[in-house]
């Protein structure tokens, strides 16, 4: 079955969407991401949509769902690289993706996630210093 690959980058997951997604593929991605977050205990998810030429309400809702599910699993979601024309269209359509964090590119997205993890997990890191790894 066709799947969108999910890359693991340390405590984060990276998804680069490069195809015009049909609805089934979008739903599969949502399920796959959910299980990978649990599997690796990931603290953040980066979704790179810079290659997406359009985001309709279905894909928009999928992004919002992923963010909500990830939130419950204690992971932050950052959608990166949205094209200007896509952003204008989404706003006109009435979808502002509340609850989804955004960044211009993957690099800035990683910085955002690092900052979020640092502010929420600073204490834990000290405790874990000589634990696993």
């Amino acid at each position: 079955m066709e799947r969108i690959p999910i890359l693991r980058m340390g405590q984060f997951l990276l998804v680069t969407i490069q195809v015009d997604m049909h609805d089934r593929l979008a739903l599969t991605l949502q399920e796959d991401l959910t299980s990978r977050i649990t599997e690796h205990g990931s603290r953040g998810v980066l979704i790179d949509i810079s290659s997406l030429e359009i985001v309709d309400s279905f894909i928009g809702r999928m992004l919002a769902n992923i963010a909500s599910i990830a939130r419950v699993l204690d992971a932050d979601t950052v959608v990166v690289g949205m094209q200007p024309a896509v952003a204008i269209t989404l706003v006109e359509l009435g979808l502002s993706l509340p609850g989804v964090r955004t960044a211009l590119n993957v690099e800035k997205g990683v910085a955002l996630l690092n900052a979020a993890v640092a502010s929420s997990g600073a204490m834990l890191e000290v405790d874990d210093a000589d634990g696993e790894d």
């Binding site: 030429e53 359009i54 985001v55 309709d56 200007p84 024309a85 896509v86 204008i88 269209t89 006109e92």
Partner: peptide, 8 residues
Amino acid sequence: VDLTKMVT
């Protein structure tokens, strides 16, 4: 922009 709106 118009194209993106129409396709959407």
